[in-house]
Design a protein around this nucleic acid. Structure first.
Length: 561
RNA sequence: UGGUCUAUGGUGUAAUGGUAACACUACGGUUUUUGGUGCCGUCUUUCUAGGUUCGAGUCCUAGUAGACCAACCA
């Protein structure tokens, strides 16, 4: 154990306080409660990492609970995807739970509420009820059905449950206070009639509990000690506690709801409704399209799970409204990838380079470091020959002194190979360069130990041997949106939001060692960025997705000139 | 025009009445067989006004600004 002082966020302070006040440590229990109506996205990362992180820190169980109280929107596919994503992030839940597991208990409690005069069946239309509810500045008025007899309420509730009424004809409401300043306390709905097939309970139920009625009671049934949610649920806390008061047995743990601010990421849309729209209207290939802000999209894009966890840790937990710059996320991704990825050579925009004094037909297999950051260095062999591809941007016939790469008459090192000197170019009729001719210093091979191999030249460029290189499909993704504000309530306008160039597919040439790359294997293409292999059964070529670029100082230097 | 929550650099988070700090970004230097990485540095911060206190980012009051609340969604 280190004595290093760790500052606690306000959530951890609440837990410490409760522990100090007598809550025993083995009663700690947390939960992550997604609704299975979409895929998890980066906006969920904070809640996931908070709850599962607390579970790890306090060695307490964390339940994964699906808040499946609205069968109209929920599907098994989403349940599966959520489980997959949480596992991929490296977390384990203690129990897989469903709000629907508690439907019977919830119903039995509701019957008790009715018997005690704490709930009644209202038979107005939703419009009428909305009118009676008042506004934030104006008290509501009582429903004409508010004082129905217990017997009548019991009978109606039973018939609601038995499916005797169509949707929308009756609801069960808690009887609290229609004049309460908190609108959620104005006789909130507990059950609505919904003749809808549920992905787990099938057609067993046709009345479904509302969030407020199901959530706190589910926490209680699972004996969750701390129920953390986002700030928009803060006004719900009073109702959460009211419902709990009605069923609470003082020998049990009483769950405590506390709220933290949801994180907003600049230039990123994370509303499930909008992500669903992108999928359904086929603007993207699916929920796991690498342009999506979903966890599964980021996985396919090559984001390492630890990067997402570190990101969540770095942005912390607080209550202020916020807009986090995506550059922080990208920093976390690079930080992780830098430690682990092999540096390999690929040329995405090739131009032919011929070494005039290199023997025709000769090939050499040169040794290359996999990753200069590795503690124990590993190496691979790369083939070298007379004709190479280099990056078109790595050559200029004449250049200013800030250009570190190949020009006519200057020397650069071919990474892992020889020092070469630009001699001449061949152009087509339009003046485009088709070949660059150079000579090499025969004594300068990397690692040969000769004096020439130690020479400093002003630049190093990457290359691939034309006869050995593998053509590969390289998909370069932009972030899908470039809208400054987070979601808001505005309708999504695809013309405004979608960058039509958000996906660029090109053919690049990669070194032959990548032939055996596996799905999601990650590489840093020298000076081009981080890429991951995306195995696509329909594609014959190797397919790479661009994960994230390197820090692009080179573009800035050029911009300055 | 009600209630609740929030307010620390460009961004995010800390400082728990006692020297305002860490990270990202930006910029500069340095190392480098990647214009990457690493290392060093610079810039920029307590919403306003009162009050309590020896001492306030922190506590109190008022103001200002922002967020949330009127789904048979969660």
């Amino acid at each position: 154990m280190s004595t290093e002082e760790k500052s606690l966020n306000f959530i951890e302070q609440i837990i410490e306080e409760d522990l100090k006040n007598g809550l025993s440590k083995n009663k700690l229990r947390f939960r992550f409660p997604p609704e299975p109506n979409g895929y998890l996205h980066i906006g969920h990362a904070s809640a996931i990492c908070l709850n599962f992180g607390l579970g790890i820190d306090y060695q307490a169980p964390v339940n994964l609970r699906f808040d499946d109280t609205n069968p109209a929107k929920e599907e098994q596919e989403y349940v599966d995807a959520i489980k997959r994503d949480i596992e991929w992030l490296g977390y384990q839940w203690a129990n897989e739970c469903y709000a629907s597991d508690y439907f019977q208990q919830l119903y039995d409690w509701a019957v008790e509420f009715v018997k005690k005069g704490k709930a009644y069946v209202d038979s107005q239309s939703s419009e009428e009820m909305a009118k009676q509810k008042g506004t934030p500045t104006q008290a509501g008025t009582n429903s004409p059905y508010r004082n129905r007899s217990v017997e009548e309420n019991l009978d109606l509730l039973k018939r609601m449950k038995n499916g005797e009424f169509p949707n929308g004809t009756h609801i069960l409401r808690a009887k609290i206070d229609m004049a309460h300043t908190n609108m959620l306390m104005r006789d909130p709905i507990m059950y609505r009639i919904l003749h809808s097939h549920h992905h787990r309970t099938g057609d067993q139920w046709c009345i479904y509990p509302m969030y407020d009625w199901a959530h706190g009671e589910s926490d209680y049934l699972e004996q969750i000690s701390h129920s953390f949610c986002t700030l928009e649920f803060l006004p719900h806390r009073e109702l959460y506690d009211w419902f709990l008061d009605q069923v609470y047995d003082s020998t049990k743990v009483r769950p405590k709801q506390r709220e933290f601010a949801r994180r907003n990421l600049s230039h990123t849309v994370v509303s499930k409704r909008k992500l669903l729209q992108l999928v359904e209207e086929k603007h993207v290939s699916g929920w796991d399209d690498p342009r999506m802000s979903t966890i599964s999209g980021m996985r396919r894009r090559g984001y390492p799970p630890m990067a997402i966890r570190n990101f969540a840790k770095t942005i912390g937990i607080a209550k202020r409204t916020n807009l986090i710059d995506v550059s922080l996320l990208e920093f976390c991704v690079r930080e992780e990838l830098n430690k682990t990825t092999h540096r390999v050579m690929a040329v995405l925009n090739p131009v032919k380079l011929i070494i005039t004094n290199y023997p025709e037909g000769k090939e050499e297999w040169l040794e290359a470091e996999n990753n200069p950051e590795e503690e124990v260095m590993t190496y691979r062999k790369v083939p070298f020959a007379k004709e190479l591809y280099i990056e078109r941007e790595d050559f200029q016939e004449e250049a200013n002194k800030k250009f570190f790469r190949l020009t006519l008459g200057t020397e650069v090192r071919l990474k892992n190979a020889y020092i070469i000197k630009g001699e001449s170019v061949v152009k087509d009729a339009d003046g485009n360069i088709t070949e660059i001719h150079c000579t090499y210093d025969t004594d300068s091979r990397s690692g040969s130990g000769t004096e020439a191999s130690q020479r400093k030249v002003k630049g190093t460029i990457h290359w691939v041997s034309i006869q050995h290189a593998i053509p590969a499909e390289v998909r370069i993704y932009d972030r899908l949106f470039s809208h400054e504000s987070p979601d808001g309530n505005k309708e999504i306008d695809f013309k405004e939001f979608i960058n039509p160039n958000s996906l660029e597919v090109i053919t690049g040439y990669v070194e032959p060692s990548l032939q055996s790359a596996k799905n999601l294997d990650q590489f840093q293409f020298q000076r081009l960025g981080y890429f991951c292999v995306d195995k696509d059964s329909s594609a014959e070529k190797l397919v790479f997705n661009k994960t994230v670029g390197l820090r692009d100082t080179w573009a800035k230097v050029e911009a300055k000139d």
